[in-house]
């Protein structure tokens, strides 16, 4: 089902608004359309699951919503600010203070301890060492890993690494956490733990946007967005 302009929200009510965004990757002679005319609004404090088969554009959409990439067409507004119009320092500042990322493969820096990984955003935000350390330790406590704070990523299990990544995402008290297949690389039991940990953040007023194949995670989200071939085909709200 082709569904254009699924939402035309009032920008002030929404944290992130994507207006008719498309993304085309130029791969030499071939052009790949990863996203096609997608519109979506993320409300403050809501949880939203993006579902769809591999290659349907979920990751691309998350990258655009988080300002890691810019759309080929359309605009992404974060609190009414067009991300494409921001200069690098402003965009970095936004990511540093308002957006947390969680990746499928954790993306922790291997030669830094769990604590140092979690403190990384605070370091770039210019916080002093003591405050950063305390905040990072608190974040690790919240995900049940305070006793593993001095361990390096290689010494942690996949689930533990992902919890460290989640702690890193919310240590800055962001407005939104964008998670790309956070349970995709984990077994079922660990995946459930990660889902619970992520959704806990929603109770603290943080919006959660998750690209996932995990039906359990989708079932617990406030809304689900279904994507096929770079388009949003359906948006459903939880009963």
């Amino acid at each position: 089902m082709r569904n254009r302009n699924l939402e035309h929200p009032q920008h002030s009510e929404h944290l992130i608004v994507a207006n008719h965004i498309s993304k085309t990757y130029d791969m030499g002679r071939q052009k790949i359309e990863a996203l096609r005319d997608v519109s979506l609004a993320i409300r403050r404090g809501e949880s939203l699951a993006i579902l769809g088969p591999s290659g349907c554009g979920k990751t691309t959409l998350l990258n655009l919503l988080g300002g890691l990439d810019i759309p080929s067409q359309g605009e992404v507004l974060f609190e009414s600010r067009n991300l494409a119009s921001l200069r690098d320092p402003e965009l970095s500042d936004l990511r540093r203070k308002r957006i947390g990322f969680v990746f499928q493969f954790y993306n922790l820096i291997p030669n830094r301890t769990a604590l140092e990984n979690v403190a990384l955003p605070l370091f770039f935000a210019g916080k002093n060492d003591k405050d950063s350390r305390n905040a990072a330790l608190q974040a690790l406590e919240r995900v049940g890993l305070s006793e593993r704070c001095d361990h390096f990523p290689a010494e942690l299990s996949g689930g533990e690494q992902q919890r460290v990544a989640i702690a890193r995402a919310f240590v800055i008290k962001p407005s939104v956490i964008l998670a790309d297949e956070p349970t995709g690389n984990l077994d079922s039991a660990t995946g459930k733990l990660i889902i619970d940990t992520l959704l806990e953040q929603k109770n603290r007023g943080i919006a959660i946007v998750v690209a996932t194949h995990d039906a359990r995670l989708a079932g617990q989200a406030d809304r689900t967005v279904n994507m096929v071939d770079g388009r949003i085909v359906r948006i459903e709200s939880a009963r």
Partner: peptide, 9 residues
């Protein structure tokens, strides 16, 4: 990774 957590250029 550093850029994704907010490091500027």
């Amino acid at each position: 990774i550093m850029r994704s957590v907010g490091a500027s250029r």
